[in-house]
Design a protein around this nucleic acid. Sequence first.
DNA 1: GCCTTCTTGACTGAAAAGGTCAGAATAACC
DNA 2: GGTTATTCTGACCTTTTCAGTCAAGAAGGC
Lengths: 144, 144
Amino acid sequence: MKLSKKSEYGLRALLELTAVHGKHSLQRQEIAERQGIPLEFLEQILLALKRAGLLSSRRGMKGGYTLIKSPQDITLGQVIRILDGPLAPIGCVSKTAYQKCADCPYADKLRCPVQQVMGTVRDAIAGILDHYTLEDFASGHRKG
Amino acid sequence: MKLSKKSEYGLRALLELTAVHGKHSLQRQEIAERQGIPLEFLEQILLALKRAGLLSSRRGMKGGYTLIKSPQDITLGQVIRILDGPLAPIGCVSKTAYQKCADCPYADKLRCPVQQVMGTVRDAIAGILDHYTLEDFASGHRKG
DNA sequence: GCCTTCTTGACTGAAAAGGTCAGAATAACC
DNA sequence: GGTTATTCTGACCTTTTCAGTCAAGAAGGC
């Protein structure tokens, strides 16, 4: 039930990018310094977010990263799925990356107690993170 | 955000023990066979649950494991904490195993956005798992 | 005393987490 | 066009965790 450092750093980086959204872009270094993130590790993360279509970037002098979409159109759920994979505690209850459990002894999967309770947990987690936007996040007001 | 195999197996084992609670005890082998759990791994798990005070055991012929408490007095939250550690996604929002985050750049921790949102998630998870008893679990009726 | 079962603790192999590095590509500036 | 600043790519590394195995011992029943 843990959030990886990768996702945590990713969220913190997006916090910085949200703060300057519409004004200017930020370089890796600025983000790394302000949030205390190892520079080379941060790079990996920013690139992943770029490939996923959340950020754009420019190289060379005056380069840097920018949010592509509006902060109210990006949810924390999206970000964490990009960096950490599915939110669901076990594969057989994931909605975005379903995987049937190989060795489950319950023939009728709908009656599997583990699946039932973990489905509820998944829904609760996704219910929060998929409705929490970067804008909510950066403005720091408590939701949920 | 994942549930380990250890916890999954632990929950499944307790399902079997709940089913015979008050009637008789079960041996490792019976549990392992019915739930398809590797025998030696299951052993570790049962012992951990015993040390935590949920089970008792007898050795020798006619030995086996028994639930010590009533199934409505054990919650899934307790079980998962024993086997997997805290439910909270990050240490700084755990109520049972708080750990301050070393490198958080927010002086006023209450204003840390990561902490705010993850606190909400933790409460949601714990809200479900700490109110879901083994009895609910075994009877398979959907809660939450 | 013998067999069965739990108990303890060490051990292992594979994968993931967390991080680092060298070198290439591209953009701006002089 | 060369220099400098930045992103980009991919490989690499170390440590920890996951999932499982094994061997030897202790206790209970017969």
